[in-house]
Each structure stands twice: as C-alpha cells, then as structure tokens.
Nucleic acid binder design. Structure first.
Lengths: 174, 174
DNA sequence: TCCTTTCTTGACCTTTTAGTCAAGTGAAAA
DNA sequence: TTTTCACTTGACTAAAAGGTCAAGAAAGGA
C-alpha cells in the first residue's frame, strides 16, 4: 500500500490544482478527496510547494509525454491538438500552472520552463520525422497558436472556432 | 480627494493581482501599498471579489482599449503586439486572470468573456479597416498566436523567438 | 456657521490555512 | 515471536486571511 497513497495524492493534487489553481487550492480538499489525514500527506511531501513541484514532474510532464510521444505524423498531431476542448476541461495544465507560478517562485519557474522545453522538443520531433523545414520555429508557432486558441475557446465555448484557427495554421504552414 | 483613493486602490490592485494572481494576492499588500486602512477600502468595494471585478472593468479593459483603439493599420498592430515583452512583465493580464478565474466564479467568467469579446472586436476592426478578408477568423488567429507566444516567451525569456513567431504569422496571413 | 454626507481610522472578529507532533498501527524482516 | 520501520491518525498550533464596526475627521452645501 506504500505507493498507493502517494500516487493517489498526486492524482488528486493534480486535479485540484488544475481546477482551482495552486494558490487557490487548499490541502484539506485534497486530503478529503483521497480520504487520508494530514500527517500522512506530510510524510510523503514536506510542504504544499513540494507537492506542487511533484505534480509538475510526475503528472503534468508525464501526461504530456504520454500524449505526444506516440504521435507519428503532423496530421495526427493536429488531430490531437484539435481534440483538446474535449480532454482539457480547464485549459492547458502546463500553461495554467506557468502563468500562475513562474513570477512568484523560482523553483516552479525552473521546473515549468524545463517541462515546456520537453513539450516543445516532442512537437519538434514530430515535425522533423515528417520532414518539415525549420521545425524549431514551427513547433513554437504550433504550440503558441494551440495555447492561445485553447484559452479563447474556454472564454467562448465555441468548438468550431478553435478547430478553424488550428486548421488555418495547418494550411498556412504546410 | 474622494476619487483618488478609489483610483489608487484600482491601480495597486491591478498590479498586485497581475503579479500574484487574484487568489494569491492579499488585501493587506494593496492596503499597505496605497497607504490606507481596511475600512477605507471596504467603503469603496464591498469585497475582494468586487475589487477584482472592478479591476477587470476599469483597468484591464481600459488598458486594452487605450492600447488597441488607436491602431491604424495591420502593420502597426503587429508592431504593438511584438512590443509586448517590454510592456507586459507578467504576461497578458486578461489571459492570466481568465485562466485563473473563469472556472471558479461565474461573475468573473462573464465579465472576462465580455472583455475578451471587446478585445477581439478591436483587432477585427483594425483588420477590416485595412481590407483584410475573413477578419473574424484572422483576429482570432492573431490573438491566439499572440497569447500563446507571450506565454512561451515568459518561460524562455527569448525576445527574438517571440517576434519570429508573430512575424511568421504576419507573413503567412498577408 | 452648522449640518449632513462622505470618507478614514484602527481595533476587533471569525474562519481558514499550512504545518507539527506524539502516539499508534501493521506488515515484513530477522 | 520479536523487532523494526514505514505509514497513519487526529488533535493541536500559529499565522494569515477576509471582513466588520463604532467612532472620528473632512469636506461641501445651505
């Protein structure tokens, strides 16, 4: 049972921070959700901050790799990107955590910066595999448009427009 | 002096919320910054939430209109967008506040959604004045790329790449 | 000048928050 | 069986948070 509590904590913390923000979330919610007591959590994580950093490393980053490492073509990439409104109910977890924390805490800043770098590399590799020119810049273009469009989607809740913006980019670039 | 305190409160609250987030900011910081006491603030704003909503209406929205309403051409628009890293030290205020609050509070959600709509309309009008086709979609494309690129910039702190992404869009579209 | 309304003060209240700790449980190693 | 160590409990603490209020100061109109 040793690992289960830690994993359950990370799962619940990820969901709670994702929805409410790191600062806005309170530990009691997570504890109640998992069904354990405080001391148990503080056995695994020395502080709320440590839990937050672990969520970035062991959930946000892991989810990104799971999602993008297996993508085989640019076409497939855009299909996955276009499905974001269905899978990401509160925006991009990495983007959201970054906007909140990078100006406040340098440990968060460093880790989020590194994680973003990995995301960018994953996208870049998909482009290179398909023989796309200037893949670094295009990876940034794709991610930027994706992140921005997802934010706009969550303010409007209009699926079609989100897809149109991304498909527009796909056609402009390729 | 009647209006001064209210205006000073809005200024300080805007800066504080902008840097630390709405939930992460505490009222004592703002009060200390302005140099007044609690009761004085609660005379003008019935709650922290009311202050936050007023900041959106009277600062975030006002700043957007000030910045974009006077832009005369698409060229000028992209120049202004490219200067964002110099003027927006903690990202796009509207984007940041939205990511944090739209899933938490419906009053924030409504107001931020409306404010975004005005921003989009301002950009759309610039495009139309220059005779750009399908201005609505292109306004969304520009804003999406801008917002996403600005987020990436703040994780990397590399000016050139931010500008390259935006200039790339400018060339792809026009 | 006097009166009314608009601010301002600063102490106070209540709730919530992250974090601590000594005592206990239980499973696995010895 | 006994010992050990990883984990769990739940009450406790201290600080910080948002918010209240009665009383006083200023400002403006009559």
């Amino acid at each position: 049972m040793k690992k289960d509590t830690r994993e359950a904590l990370l799962d619940s913390a990820f969901n709670t921070f994702y929805k409410q923000g790191f600062q806005g979330a309170n530990i009691a919610t997570i504890l109640n959700d998992v069904g354990i007591n405080k001391g148990s959590m503080y056995h695994f994580f020395k502080s709320k901050k440590a839990l937050g950093l672990a969520v970035i490393e062991e959930r946000i980053e892991r989810n990104l790799v799971n999602k993008y490492a297996s993508i085989k073509s640019v076409e497939e990439l855009f299909d996955v990107l276009c499905s974001a409104p269905k899978t990401l109910a509160y925006g991009c977890p990495l983007n959201k955590m970054s906007q909140e924390m990078i100006y406040i805490d340098t440990d968060f800043q460093k880790l989020l910066s590194t994680t973003y770098g990995k995301f960018e590399t994953l996208v870049q590799m998909i482009l290179e595999r398909d023989g796309v020119e200037s893949s670094e810049l295009k990876a940034k273009q794709i991610i930027a448009t994706y992140e921005g469009a997802l934010m706009i989607y969550h303010l409007n809740r209009q699926d079609e427009e989100f897809v149109l913006v991304l498909r527009g980019l796909e056609q402009d670039i390729f």
